[in-house]
Write a protein that binds this DNA or RNA. Structure first.
Lengths: 150, 150
DNA sequence: TTAGATGCAAACGGTTTGCAGGGAA
DNA sequence: TTCCCTGCAAACCGTTTGCATCTAA
């Protein structure tokens, strides 16, 4: 399922996860690696229910409880990022750790566009100085629609 | 409860709401105005449950269903703004329509700081040009903690 | 008079929890 | 062998919905 050219990259992800599990005294169960693999084989954003269905379709025996549990670990070691785009359920995406980006959400379809603007980083730095705080993470999300042709 | 100096401002809010209700053929019920008053007598952010408890304490007979219903109307006429700060429940605040601002959330306490940075507006404009979209609203939220004294 | 609004309680749906059985170490 | 982890199902909790009653228009 994963393209040959991505095998090495995924192997690296695996190692990061393994290292995290070992350092925290967590067991390296097959379920955890299966979930990791499924997530990194997925493009774009996903929610727990979608992931659950997808894994069921792939004939993996997995429970929602384990999905929630494992996602928590993946968030903790920064392999996955969590979003709350104004809906009542959480959405996730695998972290690239390379390309920082923010989101534009289409009001009608919920479709997600990604963009990057370096000025966010400046805002963050000024904020930290102004209030004497330390930013651990942030979310910048725009909502809207295609420009109506006037 | 509302200071004399704010009476005029609130009267103006009332008029905006009345106008909205009339234009949309909605009834001007006492419940709706009571909820409006309670919200505008509140500083900072609130959630539905908190508002419900507060109104019960003030001996107002009100149901959660009506709160959700009325909040929907207040959102629609831009008198109230909705936030989803990563929790699984929504938070709201009365709109000032004057001071645009964004948020910093303390990871531990959930306390909310407000700040303003004009560069967000520039990012928005560039985004609209770049993708040919129209932004209806947005959210910029930073999360973190007080800087550790080194 | 009557259609829209309210209060109440049940239903809904995403997430969390309790627990018996299973498997990594 | 130990006890952490899993699957399952029930519990949880914020939000939505159904319905009988009420009331603004």
């Amino acid at each position: 399922m994963i393209k040959k050219s991505n095998e090495d990259a995924f192997e690296n992800i695996r190692l990061i996860f393994t290292d995290y599990l070992e350092r925290h005294g967590h067991r390296k169960t097959p379920e955890r690696y299966t979930i990791l693999r499924e997530i990194f084989a997925t493009e774009g954003h996903f929610d727990i229910e979608t992931l659950y269905i997808r894994m069921k379709n792939h004939k993996y025996r997995v429970s929602r409880a384990t999905l929630y549990n494992t996602i928590e670990l993946l968030l903790d070691c920064n392999l996955v990022t969590k979003h709350q785009f104004g809906t009542n359920y959480a959405q996730f995406e695998k972290s690239t750790m390379l390309k920082q980006h923010d989101h534009f959400i289409f009001n009608d379809s919920g479709e997600v566009l990604e963009f990057y603007d370096p000025r966010v980083e400046q805002i963050r730095e000024d904020l930290e100085k102004r209030f004497g705080v330390e930013v651990t993470h942030y979310a910048l999300t725009f909502y809207g629609q295609s420009k109506s042709t006037k």
